[in-house]
Design a protein around this nucleic acid. Structure first.
Lengths: 108, 108
DNA sequence: CGCTTGTGCAACTCTTGGGTTGCAGCAATC
DNA sequence: GATTGCTGCAACCCAAGAGTTGCACAAGCG
């Protein structure tokens, strides 16, 4: 059941501050301290968010000298999207099946 | 900025119980009371979750006599997946751009 | 009409998690 | 080697939300 790993990703993406962090990292890789200068939250709060994002594989730490910069992994976003799309498609298929059955009943 | 409406959807999808509800509704439309007999939570808890799911457009209420059944909207899942995929693709494009620049520097 | 049953509203508990401050530690730099 | 600056850990506060119980109300059904 790979779906169990999917829910935490959505939980991670369900927070505005984390999207702000992802957006900031979209410009260039940055450390927690650097992000704290841009965003209206403390460095420690950002560090927590980065830990969450790293746990679900949305972000990757890169040591540069004595600081730790983070990079967004777009592939993980795409992968999550792919799996979500599959689920949505399954529901549509179910609806289609029900429609078929209903139409079959009508024509009898 | 349509992305602002995207975050609440992820927040809604970031809960295990709500996925259980969606899964149960995948079999057939059901009321909050019916779901309460299947899932290990109270009817009121389910009612709250259904309200959340309805707010973000993942589920739709259908009155049947004196009960209110809920139906999953797979199209909303697919739409969310599409938008998430676009975002992921943008990050990949940025990485590709950076790679191009780096390669350009090497060849000079 | 009375009974049953599904829904809706309200109040409450308790855990989770986002945010903060403070301090200790470590690694470059001068 | 001392200083500077970035990281990591810990404790704490507070709001949001997941879950519960209880009750009131409305709509079918005997």
């Amino acid at each position: 059941m790979t779906a169990s790993t999917l829910v935490p990703v959505f939980a991670a993406l369900g927070d505005d501050t984390r999207w702000s962090i992802l957006a900031a990292l979209g410009g260039a890789d940055a450390s927690a301290s650097a992000l704290a200068e841009v965003l209206p939250v403390s460095r420690q709060a950002i560090a927590k968010h980065l830990a969450v994002l790293q746990d679900v594989g949305l972000v990757e730490p890169v040591r540069v000298g004595r600081e730790v910069r983070y990079r967004v992994l777009g592939s993980q976003l795409a992968e999550t999207a792919r799996r979500l799309d599959l689920i949505g498609a399954q529901w549509d298929r179910r609806l289609a099946t029900i429609k078929q059955i209903a139409e079959g009943l009508e024509s009898e």
